[in-house]
Every structure is written in C-alpha cells, then in structure tokens.
Design a protein around this nucleic acid. Structure first.
Length: 643
RNA sequence: GCUGCUGUAGCUCAGGGGUAGAGCACGUCAUUGGUAAUGACGAGGCCGGGAGUUCGAAUCUCCCCAGCAGCACCA
C-alpha cells in the first residue's frame, strides 16, 4: 500500500505501487490529459515512473505555464530539436541542450554552421516529430554499457559526459521513436505534448564546456511556451527590449556616437554629456554627504606600481602601455586600468593614525582596459570608462559597520533612479586565495553579519570571491525584468600588504588597514546605458537633457516664448525654444519622439494672457497655467533628488 | 579573441556584372497654424577598405577593417 499526499493535503492509497499517470487518471481524465510530469517529494519525475513509497505528489500540468511545466516543455522541445537536426543533418553530433531563462538551447558538433534558413527547415521537421507523437521512454543503463553505446553511435561528447559523471550515478537515457539521448529527465509522456508554441530564435557559436581551447560547437537557441499566446507575448517582449536598445536610442536622441577610430570609446554629444554631468553631480552630492573625500589620480602610471600591486602579472595583456611592453627595459607606463593602487599612494603619504580611519577616498576614475574586441557593446562595455570608485581604508573591526553604511547608501541611490528591486550576491572564498583561513573566517563573518543587519536578502555565490577577499555584488532589476550587476563591495587584505599601507594603532603599533573596494553605479557609461534602456529613453525629469521645450504656434508668440525660456533658465531649468515655422502638431510630434518630458505651447492667446499650455510626455491633453504658477510647478518637477 | 551574419545618402532600408533608388532628415520658397507629419521644388553617395576575375565590379572571388548575435573574457 502506497499513500500519496496531494498538494491540497488530500491523501489517496494505492495498492502496491502507482505512478504519476495512475494518480492523475484516478483524479480525473482531464487532468491525465493535461499532465506533463509529476513532482514526487519535490523532485520532478516522469508520469510513468513507478512510485513505491509514501510520497507527496503534485501533477505538473501544461496549461498554467508554471515554471515546472515550462521546464518540461522546453526540455522536451530541445530533444525534438536534436532529433530533427540529426534526421536532417546526418553525422552531426549532439552535446548538451539545457534550459535557460526564457528558453533553451542545444549545442551540436558539426563542421558547417547552421544558417537562418536551416532554422526554418529544422522547425518544420520538429513539427513533424511532434505530430508523430512518439513516446518518451526512460531507460537506466549501466555506465560501461552507456559508454559503449554512445561510442558505437560515434557520439564522442556524450561519451565524455558519461565518463565525467560521478561513479554510482544512475545513468538514464530517453528515447523518442528511434532517437535516443543521454538525459536526466524527466520528460512528458510523448513528443506531442510539446505542442506548437515553440520557436527557434538564433544560431551562434559556443565552446564545448565553455572552454575557448576546446571544440567550437553550433548552438541553436529556441523557446517554447504552454500556448501560442504566451509565446507571442514573449516575442513581443523581445521586440520591446530591442526598441529600448541604448545604442539605437543613443543615436535617435543624439546622445553619443562611437566610431572606428576610437573603438571602445564614447563620443558624448551635448545631450548625452548633460546626462553624464547630472549623474556626476548627483553622485558627488551623495558621496560628500556620506563622508567621502574626492581625489584625482594620474592616467599614466609606471609599470612598476602595477607589478607591485600584482595586476601586471595577471592583466598586462589587457593594459594599454606606452613603448614596447614586451621589452623588459624600465620606463614603460600603463594607462591605469583601475584606481586602487593610486589611492594607496595617496593613503601612504604621511603617517596615518587609527584616528584617520575609516578613511573614505573616492574618485570618478577614468580607466582604460583593452577589452577583447568581441566584448565591446555600445556604451555598456567600453575600453575607456569612468568608475564611481572609492576605497575605504579601515580597521578590521570597522568592516561590519562600514558594510552596513554602504548598503544603506547604495539602496538610497538606486531608489533615486527608480530601482527598488535589488538582490545581493555573496561571493565567498575561492579555491586559490591569499590570506589565512582565519582571516577569511573573520572577513566573511563580518560581511555576513553586516548584510543580515542591513536586512538585505542575499544569495550565496560560493567560491566566487576575489582572491584577496570576499565580496558582495548588487544586482538590480530593470523595468522589463532584466538583471544588471552594478554595485560591488570587496574586502581586501592583500593590496594594503603588497603596497605597504599602514597606520599607527592606539597602542602605538604599526598596523595594516583593510581596504574596502566599492562602486555603486559601476561605470558611468554602463549605468547611463542601463538608465536609457530602463526608461526606454524617457528619463526622469531631473536627468532629461532638455527638460522643457517652449513651442510656438505663430510667430506672434516668439517674443513671449523667448521670455518664458529665459524665465525657466534663470531658475536652472534646461529649457529651449522652438520657434520654427512649423505647425504645432509637427512640433509636438517631434519633441515627443525626442522624449522631451515637458512641452510648453504658447500661441497668441497665451502671450496675451501670460499663460502657457503645458503638455507632459505621453499625456493626451495639456494644462493651461498662469506663467508664474507654471514656473513654480516646473521648478518642483525638475528638482533633483538631492536639492 | 572564436564562430556566423551584415556593411549602399545624416537615419531606416530596397536594388544588384553595363558606374545608383525610396521614405524620413536637410536646404529654398509658399503657408501663421491650437496639441503626434502643410505643400512644392532642390541638394545630397569612392555602394566599409584593398587586391583579383572581367571589355566593364557597388554587384562575383579573396584578404583586411568595422558593426551585430552568441561564446570566451570582465582586476
């Protein structure tokens, strides 16, 4: 007798053993029809798999589109894709085909890459396989037998996968008709359950096991949903993301451009630079308020300092240098790729006392890194960028408090930009690391205590810390649900040692400070890119390059319009006039496209009555206001969070 | 850096072995209008760069360069 507990708490008994399908059928035929798989004590299983012990069971059905259901549908779809590819392109080897966020991919080994036209052919074949409604059948195979099996099929990559599975791991294969693949499962009962709501999206190269020294594979990306409506919604979201692309908006809104002669460098146009300087003003205000002292350090620094800091050894390939860096002669300078060694140089001037700590040194640090060409991406990943960098020199005892203080500042700043959905990742000690276990215990403990005190939820990122200390990474979620890692907080015991930073403690002894590396925006360039995409170009009023455009209806209102602009400007509002000989419809349309937040329309009537008709971006109508009241209101609306 | 795709007017793109097209933007003129496109006319291009095939190359081939997607990388 097996007792099954369902999610609603109901209990059912079955003789001997049962299966997900038996349970679903016994509840209702309708349920059995919709069922894809089953969770048994929290683990996803095939419907046909025998349940021999008392268990908590939930049937996974397709129609709600739950995470569990999508997992099954997408993975089934990946198998169908692989079968289609091997039917159409004999000799292609299969490798892996996992689910990813919003879809799945499958990597194939094949001399010729797939083309976009191939995708259509493959999709058609997939529909065929789904129509065949072949049963997914699970079979357990002995390790050696499995290796032999895939060797005989000429599937080298599967052989390698099995060889790397831990001894004793159950090896399962799933077949659908004549096609068979190594797979952990589970799967739906038949290929027909994949349905029609799937789409192959793109092809790309990928490396076997993510290793650029290994074979280049051909990856096919796809996605699948529970019904065509959800698929369409997802495709619409992708289009929406493309519309927000900061590279496209940067051009359309005349914010910046990039060109061949300065790859990875940004040419900021007046409007884009306005956003940048407003952002900088804002950050300077917040950092001043938080007790930071701003500094500026040299761009070109002798290679010796980078050798001392340890960066030369690890990153020289990515550093821009003067002269011939391969030549060991002295006198080679490097454009700074980061600011920390320079900040230590400032700290090291004179003698520091424990009374000077914590010492918070900030810099809007311009850095250059010779990023690999394929890594460049608009203004988000560039070779010349400016970090909102700072280093806090502290005693070990101050780490907890400093961490808390930092988290508060960071959350406040993110909130000012409208980002409230922030998650923290805690990266602890990596395998190869500097410092004793005792030091690491202390550092990690201090961080954990601080993050818990700060009340921020966090997830562990095991082994991902820097070699010199643990770190926190701050990831914010944007308006269309994409995650961006921006902030960072790193505890460093190593650099103060390497660059011989010290302070005099209360007892007169010489001590090493801890260095806390931190950034909130990350880089101005990237953060502005994120802002543009988050707001789809419609920046909040305080950041908008042009805040108000005063547009005239007739030339009779020109003088008055100029007067209004002058009044606005005298209040520090970024206003321009549009006196062009165009119809008001045309002007409204153009300024709307330019995403100007406020348009003040003035015609003969407004000029006579000293009013304006104020229109808000995206609004349907306008508000008639007396000029004085309007000036006051606009001043209010455009006020930055710090003023 | 790797694989693939792309590169034509300021922008978005069509075309394609016989030296170039559209819309928008731009300029001139007319129009003075009431909240998302007034009309007419005009100007604008070494068809990414180099080499080759050809009587002839923007078009075909090769090599570069850059952009895009993904991978790898991100102190």
């Amino acid at each position: 007798m097996v007792e099954i507990t369902l999610p609603d708490g109901a209990k059912r008994q079955y003789d001997g053993s049962t299966s997900g399908m038996d349970i679903a059928t016994s509840i209702s035929p309708g349920l059995a029809k919709k069922a894809l798989a089953v969770t048994v004590n929290g683990q996803a299983w095939d419907l046909s798999r025998e349940i021999t012990e008392d268990s908590e069971v939930a049937i996974i059905v397709r129609d709600k589109g739950t995470e569990e259901a999508l997992e099954i549908i997408r993975h089934d779809c990946a198998h169908v894709l692989a079968e289609a590819v091997q039917e159409l392109f004999p000799g292609t080897q299969v490798t892996i085909g996992p689910n990813i966020e919003n879809g799945f991919f499958y990597d194939f080994y094949r001399a010729d890459p797939f083309t976009t036209e191939d995708l259509e052919v493959i999709e058609t074949k997939m529909h065929e396989i789904i129509a065949r409604d072949e049963a997914f059948e699970r079979q357990v195979m002995d390790r050696d037998a499995a290796i032999e099996f895939f060797k005989a099929k000429g599937e080298q990559f599967k052989v390698e996968l099995i060889q790397d599975l831990p001894q004793g791991e159950t090896i399962t294969l799933y077949s659908q008709g004549d096609w068979i693949d190594l797979c952990r499962g589970p799967h739906a009962p038949t290929t027909g359950k994949v349905g029609k709501a799937f789409k192959l999206l793109s092809v790309a190269g990928a490396y076997w096991r993510g290793d650029s020294n290994r074979e280049q594979l051909q990856r096919i990306y796809g996605t699948a949903f529970e019904d065509p409506k959800s698929l369409r919604a997802h495709l619409t979201m992708l289009e929406e993301a493309a519309k927000r692309d900061h590279r496209k908006l940067g051009k359309e809104l005349d914010l910046f451009h990039m060109q061949e002669e300065a790859r990875g460098g940004v040419f900021w146009h007046p409007k884009g630079w306005r956003i940048y300087t407003e952002l900088e003003k804002y950050m300077r205000y917040r950092l001043d308020g938080a007790g930071y002292e701003e500094v500026k350090t040299p761009q070109l620094v002798d290679r010796k300092l980078w050798e001392d800091s340890g960066h030369w050894e690890k990153f020289r390939e990515h550093m821009f240098t003067t002269g011939d860096a391969a030549d060991d002669d002295a006198g080679i300078l490097a454009l700074k790729p980061m600011n920390c060694p320079c900040h230590v140089q400032i700290f090291n001037q004179g003698i520091k006392s424990y009374r000077d700590l914590p010492l918070k040194m900030s810099e809007f640090g311009s850095c250059h890194r010779n990023e690999p060409s394929g890594a460049l991406h608009g203004i988000m990943r560039v070779r010349a960028f400016t970090q909102d960098d700072a280093h806090i020199f502290a005693t070990p005892e101050q780490v907890t408090e400093q961490t808390k203080e930092f988290c508060t500042l960071l959350m406040q700043i993110y909130a000012d930009f409208g980002f409230t959905d922030v998650v923290v990742k805690f990266s602890d000690r990596p395998e190869t690391r500097a410092g004793t276990d005792e030091t690491w215990d202390k550092a990690e403990g201090a961080l954990r205590e601080a993050i818990e005190d700060a009340g921020l939820p966090y997830t562990m990122n095991p082994g991902e810390g820097a070699f010199y200390g643990p770190k926190l990474e701050f990831v914010l979620r944007d308006a269309i649900g994409r995650d961006w890692q921006c902030g960072t907080w790193q505890v460093d015991f190593v650099l103060p040692e390497r660059l011989d930073a010290n302070y005099i403690a209360e007892d007169g002894s010489k001590q090493r400070p801890v260095m806390l590396h931190r950034a909130i925006l990350g880089s101005f360039e990237r953060f502005i890119g994120i802002l543009i995409e988050n707001y789809a170009g419609k920046l909040p009023l305080w950041l908008a390059p042009t805040q108000v455009t005063v547009a005239t209806i007739t030339t009779d209102a020109n003088d008055y319009a100029e007067e209004v602009v002058a009044e606005l400007k005298s209040r520090g509002i970024r206003a321009v006039s549009d006196l062009r000989n165009e119809k008001i419809n045309y002007k409204i349309r153009e300024h709307s496209h330019q995403k100007v937040p406020l348009v003040a329309v003035v015609g003969r009537r407004e000029a006579d009555e000293r009013t304006i008709a104020l229109r808000t971006l995206g609004g349907k109508d306008q508000e008639m206001m007396a000029l004085d009241a309007a000036l006051e209101q606009i001043s209010d609306l455009t006020r930055a969070p710090y003023s």
